[in-house]
Design a protein around this nucleic acid. Structure first.
Lengths: 189, 189
DNA sequence: CCTACCGATCGGTAGG
DNA sequence: CCTACCGATCGGTAGG
């Protein structure tokens, strides 16, 4: 089937456990048990517990950027661009709930330096959405409001998905993205 | 100024620390230090660490219900009822960010029994919103969609507030509520 | 990847 | 509300 290295298995198990119980309630020995080795042996593959968290959080941040950035460069009209960006953002979350949960929940346990690096990356990502919204307001496709607030409201609205969406239901990630796009662009009315 | 009992001070400090660092990264001694007593002395006022968490989470849940339930019983039209409920929900979060953070983040560290009790309470609360949405769809004020999903989308959209809103800015809780109500009811267009 | 072990710290109790 | 203390466990290292 799949040929995962021990290191990859460690990250996979850590992802599940950090997402389920949280970083600080998960011990090195918990993870090692799941992998089937002793706690001390984990240090042959990973330099420390925070290293595990950083890799997971960092990968999650990059996944968002990699998926939405191409949409910005496209020649779509503002409304369609926003719609595509919303769907992409929703898909990144819905397709990897564990990763998203760690990204939104556990970053606070990173060192100050890594926290800063992550915040910078997140700010750059939010700016992608703000730019689309600004463009849409300039072209009078969207209601004129404070774009800074609108982009935060919008993204934080989407981010709630990780709290309730679970794989395997009738609603596929792309459909969920469309629901959100409809709700946020057109409203309930 | 204020005459708080030691017990009240303990809860106040615990609220801040659980919200800042998370439940499992906060120790009994951390809280006691903030209060100005020894860790062991805390047990003269509180039966245990989980007791602290339960009280805080439980109070938060009741605050939502107490604020929104009266709106349901009112004779407002569906759209105005939903608008009022959204603003109330937003206000409960924005007026007590620490409490909301613990409510959304730390419930997983409760015992299974308490987790169940909390989930039941939350389900009853979500039903309040679902009922308004159903009513609005029946009266053709809102687009017809799956009310179950719409109410979850709506509430989880609002809940993101605790991740970015902070007291003292230009945007007051009631204004923030209005922004959300506009965005979700009317959309960006 | 293991055994053995480190110093530090955890939630909580006994007995004032 | 304190001192003294409990057994358990933590992240991590040494040395194979």
């Amino acid at each position: 089937m799949q040929q995962l290295s021990t290191k990859e298995i460690i990250y996979q198990k850590a992802q599940r456990m950090f997402s389920d119980r949280g970083y600080s309630a998960t011990t090195i020995r918990d993870i090692a048990d799941e992998v089937g080795i002793k706690g001390a042996s984990l240090y042959a593959h990973v330099s420390g517990k925070e290293e595990l968290l950083w890799e997971l959080v960092h990968q999650a941040a990059e996944a968002f950027y990699a998926r939405v950035n191409p949409i910005i460069d496209s020649s779509l009209a503002p409304e369609e661009k926003l719609r595509a960006a919303i769907i992409a953002h929703v898909e990144v979350i819905a397709e990897n709930i564990e990763s998203a949960t760690i990204y939104f929940h556990e970053w606070k346990f990173l060192s100050p330096k890594r926290k800063r690096a992550l915040r910078d990356r997140r700010d750059a990502y939010e700016a992608l959405f703000r730019d689309i919204i600004n463009e849409g307001m300039r072209k009078k496709v969207f209601f004129k409001r404070d774009a800074r607030y609108v982009s935060i409201l919008l993204l934080s609205s989407l981010n709630g998905i990780y709290t309730w969406y679970r794989k395997g239901g009738v609603l596929k990630p792309a459909q969920l993205g469309t629901m959100y796009a409809d709700l946020l662009i057109t409203g309930l009315k």
